[in-house]
Write a protein that binds this DNA or RNA. Structure first.
Lengths: 337, 337
DNA sequence: GTGAAAGCGCTAACAA
DNA sequence: TTGTTAGCGCTTTCAC
């Protein structure tokens, strides 16, 4: 009478129909050649007839393995992460795994953290884009699965990490501007507080060092903090700057998305790009190839980042603790030649 | 000797330290007031001291519940899905659930389907953006969890669905163009084959009916099929059209992303927008507010779609089988007033 | 108010 | 070559 325990067909059902043990069914379905071909065929037939599908939850509880890699990102609608995720997913699909994406942001940071991090134990490994998460937080969570940090700056801790060379990238971009006629460069989305250790801060450091290395004066008023990460933040900040009468002849935006908002604000105010104002973004997203003018940008080499992450996952111990991926500068139409 | 079964702290460990049963621990941790306050406190202390985190896999196997909703989308770097996912995630976070995103596309469609759909059983419900999945496929998968279809056209089958009113949206957009000076409108990303039943086809239907209803002649040569879904596809198609000398005075693009590529191609060829050529896209993505000129678009009301999906998940049976969300037209700068 | 026991569906040892 | 057994870590009756 318990042929249908709930609604789904279980492995036990298949075993019963095929007249074999559950172990035999499990073996055949997982490609372990433990039984005679005739038995295997009988099992396969029974499974198909019943419409059996393995319960991944039970499989994981028993075997400890999933074929899923979690990727935790701060926002779901950011082109940079979308493109990076695509690279990761392509590689993982090819090796029979799959990528699963979750958002870490949302309303309150830490409230989510507690509940959400627990859920990450469902994955074989987790790629975590660190923003507000501090090392002590991570340790206190008692992470038992491989965790790869995708970050801005080397963080002390026991987890391997792939870090983008933010400072060098920003340095190159700003140096290019300074050596191509710019004297007053807005750092759009920069950071004034020296205690922060995030992407914003790292890129501002590069902005500063570029001025220093080329003996250009640096105006703190040109380092503009942003309240958001979307194009509207860049648009609003540039509009405010123009309205205030602050002169500038270039914009280095913390991300391409922000740069796109900035370019719109410049166009609305009647400035030409790159004639009146040059613009460089960061991330080299695809959208930048279709803006008017096409956006020059710091290319973080997402495909290399993805590869480095997967390598780190593949070789848990032997790999170096922190891999830094260098950036290059992609010049398009928003900067002077 | 089996105090540490593996590496993680289990509920049994907490029970032992607190000197209570596993049931008591489980109850307290799940907020079920079954024990005395003093006992509860002891359990909480023990859990914190040991750094206990519940194993979600085991919880699910036993209780059948996750707090995760799966969202399966065709590509990871499409703004429309990113924005829709953000709406869904915002709502779900607020009610203690979380959204998990996976890609259905990738290399081969059906090969993935088999392995991947099985994994979806890990979720309480799955929101599936249907593209190449046919109804028979779905049924054969023996889905045992609530499945919401997010689609273009009502599909026969047992699953509730939220459908975008593609045809009406396209009809409105094209009618606007036809009544504002356009006579030769390119349907960029249209479909010639009448047997398809996808988004492409639905929007082309609206394009056709708009011509018909307003007594405008329709040129099949202006219905251009695309090989991709990114801006490069729109860019390439428009460039080809211009090179071929095909005259046109408006473009209705199947998505905003394609429209953005088209606008770039028009600019490169020296056409003004909307003076020489008007452009309307579909999806009303945020990026459209920052293009030059700002992009007019069919607004599918993603927040309403998200709400409808969640309503359908919340009330499994009582809800209507298929909900259609109407679209509106958002006019910006890429069309004539 | 609390504990004991019975599994959820599966896999990995060990027996046969 | 195959079947039996013992759990993975948790929730949930049911007894006390």
């Amino acid at each position: 009478m318990n042929r249908r325990p709930r609604t789904a067909v279980t492995l036990a059902d298949v075993a019963e129909v095929a007249g074999v043990s559950k172990a035999a069914v499990s073996g055949v379905l997982n490609g372990k050649p433990r039984v005679a071909p005739s038995t295997a065929q009988r099992i396969l037939d029974a499974a198909r007839t019943l419409g059996y599908h393995a319960n991944p939850t039970a499989q994981q509880l028993r075997s400890g393995r999933t074929n899923a890699i979690g990727f935790v990102i701060p926002e779901l609608n950011r082109p940079y992460f979308g493109e990076l995720a695509t690279h990761l997913a392509n590689q993982l699909d090819a090796q029979g795994q799959h990528l699963v994406i979750q958002r870490s942001g949302g309303s309150k940071e830490h409230e989510l953290a507690a509940a959400q991090f627990a859920q990450l134990r469902r994955y074989d490994a987790v790629i975590l884009s660190v923003l507000g998460v501090d090392p002590p937080d991570l340790e206190s969570l008692g992470f038992s699965i491989p965790l790869i940090l995708l970050g801005e700056k080397s963080m002390p801790g026991a987890h391997p990490q792939v870090i983008m060379d933010n400072e060098a990238g920003a340095h190159n971009a700003v140096t290019h501007l300074l050596t191509h006629g710019a004297t007053r460069i807005v750092m759009l989305g920069g950071s004034h507080s020296p205690d922060r250790n995030d992407m914003t801060r790292r890129r501002t450091d590069g902005y500063r060092s570029a001025h220093c290395d080329t003996n250009h004066p640096l105006n703190e008023e040109l380092i503009v903090e942003l309240t958001g990460v979307g194009p509207e933040a860049g648009y609003h900040a540039i509009t405010t700057l123009i309205d205030a009468g602050t002169p500038f002849d270039a914009v280095f935006a913390v991300t391409d998305v922000v740069a796109i908002g900035a370019m719109r604000a410049l166009a609305d105010a009647g400035f030409t790009i790159p004639g009146d104002v040059q613009v460089i973004g960061f991330d080299d997203i695809t959208d930048g190839c279709y803006t008017i003018p096409r956006l020059s940008s710091v290319n973080p080499h997402k495909e290399r980042i993805a590869q480095a992450v997967l390598d780190l996952i593949a070789e848990p111990e032997t790999a170096p603790q922190a891999v830094t991926i260098p950036t290059t500068l992609t010049l398009r139409e928003s900067t002077q030649r």
